[in-house]
Design a protein around this nucleic acid. Structure first.
Length: 484
RNA sequence: GGCCCCGUGGUGUAACGGUCAGCACGCGAGGUUUUCAUCCUCGUAGCGCGAGUUCGACUCUCGCCGGGGCUACCA
């Protein structure tokens, strides 16, 4: 597993953690996205944190789709979210559950509230509410109408007093009920709204910890009131700071590489993405940067989650991903690369597949330490599977006046190199340096351009070896001809 | 406008009243090197502002400023 340098870790210090953190209380969490679009990295991070907490406590994770708004919820969007979670390799124990399908149960609880006069029917529209709010800053209270009145919505009766949300990250936050509107919890057609459904579902499913984005913080008192009016005890809450785009605004589809799908198609590795996402808002106690998923599960705790919003930084993700690339077992590396290539460039994938297995593996190996993402690999090795591209700029830069005899020497030496392996290739090429009185770069760069077409490739000796004697010599001969 | 949250370098974070404010990415300069990358060394840059509490504040309190979220019969 990648870890930040084998620096000496301090010896384990005896610590006396409070009982609550050492106890093995099993948590039950939920990830509850609304299917209104692709899963972006903010949602992905929320999913990851919930997953880490569930796994770390030996508890469980529920996947619940918040689809009470039928208009905006599409099966396509649900699939996209499921795909994203699968790609991230985050699994769940229950679900996916459709919130919408629990309408009967929601209706049941709604009637309870109505019967106890904790909620009432109201005809007030958004306009009337707004009009009243323009006069005073007090919360809106509706005029109850008879049950069964055509088109009447149901409003929750907000009690007097203060609602306190106990937040694991921010501490106690109190809301003055008098400024809260009586929220609509069911539409005129009887269907319930999000803030009501969530409260019921979290209760019914026995959720112990609700971990979600900060954008829900203002919703929480409404949900807590619903639960309290029902005589129930709310779960623990933790509101994560939002992830912002480079413009400092809440992350949304408008921002660049923001969705999980995009990270996947950009050639990142799921494990690296998990590592990076974990670090966006949380830090290991010992400042470790590279943590395997196992280590994350073991170390992650809500107490160490920060309170301020963070900005997605792709540069760091790239760096982390590069570290994971280098640690990748060859088999997995090969599998992921092949999948990625066939998605990104079918023609290239065909060319790659046409190479024999040994060459494919060798190519991937010599490119491994140079690639930061799966997408970086193909440009480095394509010359082993296709005719090299013609990079005129690279050609002009390295093919100087005295280059031709050097390449002729190189071709001759390569004809003799035996076996045709990196060490012996180097041994046969190196004497040319002294004989011609040139520096390594003056010989090796022209060879590189001749065989790979460009100025960047894996190590030249490895590249020649994998290419094979015949192709290597003929490509060099071709360059010699062109230099004539 | 109202309610709520947040504020350490360009970015992510550490520090939980006493440290030369640490680490990582990035960036810069060297070194290794057959290119690039890796790797190694060094460097760069920060506690939003102002009061107060205290022997002592990044750490506590208040105000200001700045950023953000919510304010739907959306989620």
């Amino acid at each position: 597993m990648p870890r930040s340098r084998a620096r000496a870790r301090p010896p384990p210090v005896e610590t006396w953690a409070p009982i609550s953190t050492v106890s093995s209380e099993k948590k039950k969490l939920r990830f509850a996205p609304s299917p209104t679009g692709a899963l972006h990295i903010g949602g992905a991070r929320t999913a990851l944190y919930n997953w880490l907490l569930a796994r770390g406590s030996g508890g469980s994770l529920v996947l619940r789709i918040e689809d009470t708004d039928r208009e905006r919820s599409t099966g396509e969007n649900v699939e996209q979210i499921l795909d994203a979670l699968r790609w991230l390799e985050l699994d769940w124990d229950e679900g996916p559950l459709s919130q919408h399908e629990r309408a009967d149960r929601h209706g049941e609880r709604l009637r309870e509230l109505l019967d106890a006069d904790k909620a009432y029917h109201s005809l007030a529209t958004a306009e009337t509410v707004k009009a009243q709010k323009a006069q005073s800053n007090l919360g809106f209270r509706g005029e109850p109408v008879a049950p069964g009145t055509e088109g009447a919505a149901v409003r929750l009766r907000v009690p007097e007093g203060t609602t306190i949300v106990h937040d694991e990250i921010r501490g106690d936050i109190s809301f003055d009920n008098s400024v809260h509107d009586d929220p609509v919890i069911a539409r005129g057609d009887g269907s319930v709204l999000y803030n009501f459904a969530v409260a019921i579902d979290d209760l019914d499913m026995g959720i112990t910890d609700v971990v979600r984005g900060d954008d829900h913080l203002s919703n929480t008192p409404k949900q807590v009131i619903v639960m309290e009016q029902l005589g129930e005890t709310p779960p623990r809450y933790a509101h994560l700071p939002l992830l912002h785009g480079p413009d400092g605004k809440k992350l949304s589809k408008r921002h660049g590489a923001a969705s999980v799908q995009e990270l996947a198609s950009a050639g990142y590795l799921p494990a690296a993405v998990r590592n990076y996402l974990a670090l966006l808002g949380w830090g290991a106690a010992d400042d470790q940067t590279l943590l395997s998923t196992d280590e994350l599960v073991r170390q992650f705790s809500i107490e160490r989650v920060g309170r301020s919003s963070a900005i997605f930084d792709e540069k760091k993700l790239r760096w982390i991903n590069g570290r994971y690339m280098r640690e990748l077992p060859l088999e997995e590396y090969e599998r992921r690369f092949a999948e990625q290539l066939s998605r990104a460039d079918p023609a290239a994938a065909e060319a790659f597949a046409a190479g024999d297995a040994e060459r494919r593996r060798a190519a991937l190996q010599i490119a491994q330490e140079k690639a930061q993402t799966l997408d970086d690999v193909w440009p480095l090795v394509r010359f082993l599977f296709e005719d090299p591209p013609n990079d005129e700029k690279a050609w002009r830069k390295v093919m100087k006046d005295g280059t031709r005899p050097l390449l002729e020497d190189a071709a001759a030496a390569l004809r003799e190199a035996d076996p045709f392996e990196p060490a012996s290739i180097e041994a046969s090429l190196a004497p040319i340096l002294a004989a011609r009185g040139v520096k390594p770069g003056q010989l090796y760069q022209p060879i590189r351009v001749a065989i790979s077409g460009g100025a960047v490739s894996p190590g030249i000796f490895e590249s020649l070896a994998v290419l094979g004697r015949d192709s290597a010599v003929s490509r060099i001969d071709r360059a010699v001809t062109r230099l004539r």
